[in-house]
Design a protein around this nucleic acid. Structure first.
Lengths: 134, 134
DNA sequence: TATAAAGGGGATCAAATTGGTCCTAAAGGT
DNA sequence: ACCTTTAGGACCAATTTGATCCCCTTTATA
């Protein structure tokens, strides 16, 4: 239960690689894909999401590629994961207010607590931290 | 991300209904399914899992049905969820020791922490508590 | 000892999601 | 012009999810 998908896995590996490059250094998607051992076309889609959300900046043409849009210490694991997997949401009922057939369900508060805790943990981890890891 | 499936949702609804019955009272799967508003054949499968894991006891034939195998206060939400969704496992890498291409991945400790927290929350909630909820 | 009333278990199936490819367009450098 | 590189959409196969169906076994009781 609650498993990260390949997409999430790849997203993390890819952005960690970017974070390990010298600041300002532009990386090609082909380079990132090779280093992170991820299918290139798939990773390209992932980085499109990153770009749209402002986690990375992209440039086209010769000399183009991807760079972090912010210092790695200002990008959280939560942002990266949510960029490709959508919001942390242990149960659909956390979206609307009425989840059960009439009124909030009996487990509502528990899922809310799970959500809060997970978000808190992932918010506390930056890509910088992960990139510097042993 | 991390969404509970219908199966998990149904499992919880079904066992809460059982917990709300007078102690010892046998409930038919048809009765539970109607009350919980869950497809009966699907719920039957779910309760088979419960029975195999010893959360409920089942009896066949006339007068048969399902009863909680333990007091509702001794059944945790975690047991119910894991019975049908498998173990709480934010990342595959939490199974083996080496997750990344050689050695544990950089995010390993984070997923471990998420797992521990979620397990802790769900372990702290009993079916009894849910059944008595407003 | 039939027979009806349950649950057990396997096979099967459609729909949704996941994981991934391909192609064409657009943008930028030479 | 022409090459390089990302953008975006269409498309596709495999897997998972969400069921349904059918036949078997167990059990009470008429």
């Amino acid at each position: 239960m609650m498993e990260l998908t390949r997409k999430g896995e790849y997203a993390i590996r890819g952005i960690i690689y970017l974070a390990q490059q010298p600041p300002g250094r532009v990386s090609l998607i082909s380079e990132i894909a090779a280093a992170a051992e991820v299918p290139q076309t798939f990773l390209a889609k992932i980085f499109q999401s990153f770009a749209k959300l402002g986690l990375v900046t992209s440039s086209r043409g010769t000399g183009g590629g991807f760079v972090l849009a912010r210092p790695a210490s200002a990008i959280t694991l939560r942002e990266v994961v949510e960029a490709v997997e959508g919001p942390i949401l242990p149960n659909r009922c956390l979206l609307g207010s009425a989840c059960d057939r009439g009124g909030p369900c009996r487990v509502h508060a528990v899922w809310k607590q799970v959500q809060t805790e997970v978000v808190h943990i992932l918010d506390g981890v930056t890509i910088d931290t992960l990139a510097r890891n042993p």
